[in-house]
Amino acid sequence: MSETILQVSGLSKSFADNKVLKDISLSLEEGSVMSIIGSSGSGKTTLLRCITGLETADRGTITVAGERVFDSERTQKLTREQKRHYQLLTGLVFQNFNLFPQYSVLKNVTLAKELLLKEQIKQGKAQKDELEEVEKQAKELISSVGLADKLASYPCELSGGQQQRVAIARALILSPKVLCFDEPTSALDPEITGEVLNVISSLASEGRTMLIVTHEMGFAKEVSDTVLFMDSGVIAEEGTPKEVFENPKSERLKSFLNSTLKV
């Protein structure tokens, strides 16, 4: 039995009068992959944004690797250092990549880690030689996503699939406990989604803990240990890919799966 690495309890979030998340709870075990499916507006992206700290939930708690990264009851302010520590427990790969256009592929991957280490060196928490390691590590990650020949390229010179693979390397260099993906292939041409999905699959087989919001049902079925189906802000169904895709219980999930198959 492996350890629970992500625990979300009673999470609720509203935008004005619109209740986007209603008392969501889930848990994710270390080394497992969870996919979240559901129609747009079901709250899956908001859930991911709450977990990665881009949105603040109204109620509930989020625990990553035993640390309470979010608690709506918490009254004391977090220090900058605590915030960053919690922030870096999760990583996020965006739908639109959001690479930094003015930096080369290599610099996109090294930037955040270098800034972090420079601060830690100032505080005496890291050594100067660790800074030299960053570039080496970045190069390894970039070749692991198949872009060793693009180190010096700029994002505008890359295809969408290549950009997304750089974005994955950029997230990996900070060694997040849970790597989240927000519809990682939705902005890509259908014929190049494969190269990104392959990278994610190989991360899964290396035992990375991942939380993936996706519209790629075939991929979700293949790569996930658990699949969540979200509908109007609640988790409507949860189970193994086999259970969810082959034996949907609710009418809502049945009709959702039917409609995605038709497309």
């Binding site: 990665t52 700290g53 881009l54 960053r84 922030q87 870096l88 999760t90 990583g91 996020l92 965006f94 639109n96 959001n98 690479l99 930094f100 930037l111 955040a112 800034l115 972090l116 950029r170 997230a171 900070l174």
Partner: peptide, 11 residues
């Protein structure tokens, strides 16, 4: 998204 990328990277 540029800011958000910075935030999730701990900047």
């Amino acid at each position: 998204g540029q800011q958000e990328a910075g935030i999730v990277l701990g900047m």
